[in-house]
Design a protein around this nucleic acid. Structure first.
Lengths: 341, 341
DNA sequence: TTGTAAGCGTTATCAG
DNA sequence: CTGATAACGCTTACAA
């Protein structure tokens, strides 16, 4: 069926009357080939539409110019955006991307990394702080360090210390700190903090929130920190049912939760931002769908991806003095659910 | 740097005192190996953590169990959802996915398909009707037929006739027909049709809209068909500026455009659905972000992907009598912007 | 500058 | 049931 005999380097060598070595040199445009023979060979290549067999190529070079990308879920807005940028940049640099979606369980993450490594990828990119260990430190990051022994590992929005591990993260701590401070200076007394995970980045956000409260002289009310699911309706329902909960502002670690808060406010006839200020995170498309529109932290995913890929490319080119960590600052995009000065 | 000598099949053969052929047989669990030797070999494999070199494997088998997925943009909600399902299903069937994002230009599509084919993929999946040719028939689908000479090609939401080409599409014609009919029976006289492309599927939707108008005895007003960009604000602004446009309902071929229409209605103090009925398409997360929430056509992306992958797997297993086309019916999810019976 | 030939690590075909 | 060996198609010393 598919066994049409493909033309190979021997055919081209024969047609152009040179050796396979010369053909190979032409393919990899080695400098030491006469223009004349090069032309001959090129002619044959064009004529036959020859493309080298990447398996044989891989066998010799032990590389296929392929980067493994692992995300927990590509259906997530944040992740798919990240992958869009990564794929674009790497493609332009001559790399192909092989994509795996691991889900969020530790076991699945590990097996997917193994699968990717067995594919002889040249580097591994882990997208999302879920790969950076979590609050409950029982789940460690050894499997990442293990992977880094084989190929350089790049983590987007997580921080893991280790040889051959490179991290780029948005400054979620600072962003959360700034948002919380701004809310306080705006006169808010009871700031609800909604989070959907215990990942590294979720933790950063929480710490920013806590430190801001502390530094502004507020006492922490544990009941204001709520772990929930990143879904519009889960949050709306939770707020509606939780009648004893009191708050004048909400900071959510993802836009979908914040939209849930908006829907709650609308259902209760609360005016935003006066009665209730709301800030989301990720500055996704969702922000402009609601009315009022959602203020949200832009975590500069594009910059983070660009930075990651730049370093990846450098390293694969053999450059060694590349910083292991890099932090990108976020910025708050204000829309209708806040009105800071 | 990365040249740690990997253990290979010869090492395992030596350690377990058998030939490489036997090791290979064990790896591919061939039935004709004694339990005893099998155990010996397995022990060595475990002990060394041996995994076969996929390049060598590929060279021999001329396949790496890899499926190429081409999408115009993975940042698009519809596409990323589709890829999420595809990746999951194919992974469970033992295939890896290599992802390319081509953009929408004909030239880019062709070069990306070439790149994917050169990677020796076992099959190619094209996601989105942009790959199925467009209204202006100048852009043909020869490049797809060409690709199908090398590997089976699967198109999601597009229809291309040809050998070795398999299509699964949601029934966009019927869905658009039904929505339009329902709007008319709901008493709507002036139905705006918003579309952002001239792809196969956009065309199907338009035809459904037109046929419904015709069959319900309405005359077509060309000015009611508006080509625009799939962006919330583009649509909102366009409707706001276009003051001479009159309509009592809007049917958009993508949710983002419909959300733009909702925002327009809110800004004009129009009551939905009474003053203005709105229907979107894709039933994405955006639908529940607005208030009122958006009625939208669920185009069953999961089913479409499942169907596609099922056939792909069958074909790669050598099954030949597989239907070339398959259509999945959509269903309207009603929310606050409509109230049909 | 070009050619020869070994090597990359599997799988598959034959013999035994 | 197992082993020897050719074959897969390219890269790259090393020779010429």
């Amino acid at each position: 069926m598919n066994d049409k005999k493909n033309i190979n380097i021997y055919d081209i060598a024969k047609i152009s009357g040179v050796s396979t070595a010369t053909v190979s040199r032409v393919m990899n445009n080695s400098p030491k080939v006469t223009e004349k023979t090069k032309a001959k060979v090129m002619a044959a290549i064009e004529q036959c539409g020859y493309t080298p067999n990447i398996f044989a190529q891989g066998l010799g070079l032990n590389s296929m110019h392929t980067i493994g990308i692992l995300v927990p879920s590509i259906a997530d807005l944040y992740m798919s955006n990240a992958v869009a940028h990564i794929e674009d940049i790497l493609h332009n640099a001559g790399y192909d991307c092989i994509l795996h979606c691991s889900g969020y369980s530790a076991k699945q993450k590990e097996t997917h990394i193994q699968l990717l490594l067995n594919k002889k990828i040249d580097a591994l990119i882990l997208v999302g702080s879920t790969y950076a260990g979590s609050e409950d430190t029982t789940h460690n990051t050894d499997y990442i360090k293990q992977a880094a022994k084989r190929v350089p590992v790049f983590i987007i929005n997580g921080l893991v210390n280790g040889d051959n591990i490179y991290c780029t993260a948005s400054n979620d701590y600072q962003a959360a700190y700034d948002v919380t401070s701004a809310l306080i200076r705006d006169g808010r007394e009871q700031i609800l903090f909604l989070t959907d995970s215990k990942s590294y980045s979720a933790n950063q956000k929480k710490n920013g929130y806590l430190d801001a409260l502390r530094n502004e002289g507020k006492t922490l009310d544990e009941s204001k920190i709520i772990h929930t699911v990143n879904s519009v309706y889960t949050v709306k329902d939770m707020l509606t049912e939780n009648e004893q909960l009191s708050f004048d502002s909400i900071f959510a670690t993802d836009d979908a939760m914040a939209i849930g808060a908006i829907k709650y406010a609308i259902s209760k006839n609360l005016h935003m931002p006066n009665d209730l200020a709301i800030v989301g995170y990720n500055n996704s498309t969702l922000c402009v769908c609601s009315e009022p529109e959602l203020s949200s932290v832009d975590n500069k995913i594009e910059q983070v991806c660009q930075d990651t890929c730049n370093r990846l490319i450098e390293i694969l080119q053999g450059n060694t003095d590349i910083p292991n960590q890099s932090i990108i600052n976020c910025s708050l995009i204000q829309r209708g659910t806040t009105n800071f000065e």
